[in-house]
Amino acid sequence: MSNTPGRPLRADAERSVRAILAAAERVLAGTPGASMEQIAEAAGVTRTTVHRRFANRQALIDALAAEAAVKLAEAIEDGHPETAPPLVALHRATANVLRVKAAWGFALGPAAEQSERAARTHEDIARRCVELLGRIRAEGVIAPDADLEWVRRVFYALIGEALHGEGGAGPVDADPDTLAARIVDTLLHGVGPRASG
């Protein structure tokens, strides 16, 4: 959380860091070039407090990206991808991911992609996604010769489209469960006509 990994923070310091990260997400989502001073003001702390927790702006962005990646991993874990029926897990994880991505748009976007800590978490998320898709393939819902890494990439692209809409105009639909159903249906069945009977 702070830039001294491994050393636990006191409760007040932890609250301060959380307030700074929440403010950073809000401010940077609207103004990506915002200064540390603007973030401090939005967090209700002094600029000195922000600098005490984060050596520089990049350290703050790295921490923000790592925090958002953890939230994303928790959202997926809440879908129980290893133990729930695979289609149930996929739907639930998808709806949860949509919620997190909508709340952490800056931290999960291109501007925060350089964080090594976040990158490791995203690699683990991708691995777990492919494993879940493997469980779905084993049930015969995905073709046995499907390239699961490609399926994962298409899945991610559908989530991106659902969140950003045409030209980044915002969510296609505000309800994550409705969007999740649409994404999963498109991923698994495409857009061709359904077999009758």
Rank of each mutant, 00 (worst) to 15 (best):
A13E: 13
E14V: 05
E14Q: 15
E14N: 13
R15C: 06
R15L: 10
R15I: 02
S16M: 13
A19I: 01
A19Q: 10
I20Q: 13
I20S: 10
I20E: 08
L21F: 05
L21D: 08
A22F: 09
A22W: 06
A22I: 06
A22L: 11
A23H: 07
A24M: 13
A24R: 14
E25C: 11
E25D: 02
E25P: 09
R26K: 12
R26M: 11
V27I: 04
V27D: 07
V27F: 12
L28M: 08
A29D: 05
G30I: 09
G33F: 03
G33Q: 12
A34T: 00
S35V: 00
S35R: 06
S35H: 05
M36Y: 06
E37V: 13
Q38Y: 07
I39N: 07
I39V: 15
A40E: 01
E41C: 14
E41L: 15
A43I: 01
A43Q: 11
A43D: 10
G44E: 00
G44Q: 02
T46V: 10
R47E: 11
R47C: 04
R47F: 08
R47V: 09
T48H: 14
T48N: 13
T49E: 08
T49D: 05
V50K: 09
V50I: 06
V50H: 06
H51N: 13
H51C: 07
R52T: 14
R52C: 05
F54I: 11
F54Q: 12
F54V: 10
A55R: 15
A55P: 13
A55T: 15
R57Y: 01
R57D: 03
Q58T: 09
Q58K: 02
A59W: 03
A59S: 11
A59Y: 03
A59I: 14
L60Y: 00
L60K: 03
I61Q: 01
I61D: 03
D62V: 08
D62N: 13
D62P: 05
A63W: 04
A66L: 14
A68P: 03
A69E: 00
A69Y: 00
A69T: 00
A69N: 01
V70R: 12
V70C: 07
K71V: 08
L72G: 06
A73F: 04
A73G: 10
A73H: 11
E74S: 14
A75M: 09
A75L: 07
A75N: 06
I76P: 02
E77D: 12
E77A: 11
E77Y: 00
E77H: 01
E77S: 04
E77Q: 07
D78S: 15
G79A: 04
P81L: 07
P81Y: 04
P81Q: 02
E82N: 09
E82M: 08
T83D: 07
T83E: 06
A84Q: 01
A84D: 08
P85V: 00
P85E: 14
P85D: 13
P86E: 00
L87A: 08
L87P: 03
V88G: 01
V88L: 04
V88A: 04
V88K: 06
A89G: 01
L90T: 08
L90S: 11
H91W: 05
R92D: 09
R92T: 13
R92I: 08
A93F: 05
A93E: 06
T94V: 00
A95I: 03
A95T: 05
